[in-house]
């Protein structure tokens, strides 16, 4: 299970980085700001996935730090995709509440999904669900709401997160 998850996370990281490279090349040639913003977004999402992969391979203490920081990078990726400043101002305070960073990731990716179309919308909705799972999982564990299910909930959340990237990679394969 862990090996399969590792493989999916690696593939999704590769997709994000290759897309980022492709968008950066276009930014250099065309000089369009939107390409630079998307380059940054995809690089941050890729870094988040690399940290997730490292968290699977690391010791328990380090793993938790990497697991949490992977969301921080993902949040930065989603936020840099959002152009409406008002939305950013509304979402930012969420970082202060418990499990807030994953909640913020869930809401910011929901917002990106809302402003997108087609497969991008579906993929970012999956990312939103995945982050919601990651934020509710530890909370459920603390409150003993879902005994024994918290870990599998977190694993499924990561599967969804990697799956979202693979959906994008298949649909927009020309991007890489």
């Amino acid at each position: 299970m862990e090996a399969l998850l590792g493989l999916l996370v690696s593939a999704s990281a590769a997709f994000y980085f290759l897309s980022s490279l492709s968008l950066f090349t276009l930014h250099r040639v065309v000089g369009e700001e939107a390409f630079l913003r998307l380059t940054l977004s995809f690089a941050l999402l890729g870094t988040g996935q690399v940290l997730m992969l490292l968290s699977l391979l690391s010791s328990e203490d380090l793993s938790f730090a990497l697991y949490t920081s992977s969301t921080a990078f993902a949040v930065s990726g989603y936020l840099s995709m959002i152009r409406a400043r008002q939305a950013l101002a509304l979402l930012s305070p969420l970082i202060l509440i418990p499990s807030g960073i994953d909640m913020l990731a869930s809401l910011s990716s929901s917002y990106v999904s809302y402003t997108s179309h087609g497969f991008v919308r579906a993929a970012f909705l999956l990312l939103a669900i995945s982050h919601l799972g990651r934020s509710v999982g530890p909370l459920a564990a603390d409150l003993r709401l879902l005994p024994g299910l918290e870990i599998s909930m977190l694993i499924w959340a990561e599967f969804l997160r990697a799956l979202a990237a693979l959906i994008l990679a298949v649909r927009y394969r020309k991007l890489i």
Binding site: S22, L26, V29, A34, S116, V120, L175
Partner: peptide, 22 residues
Amino acid sequence: KGLETLRKLRELKDFLEDLGVD
């Protein structure tokens, strides 16, 4: 280089439109 860029832009058109990029 212009032809290559045009090809890449055409390939990315759907993706950019789906992402809501003007």
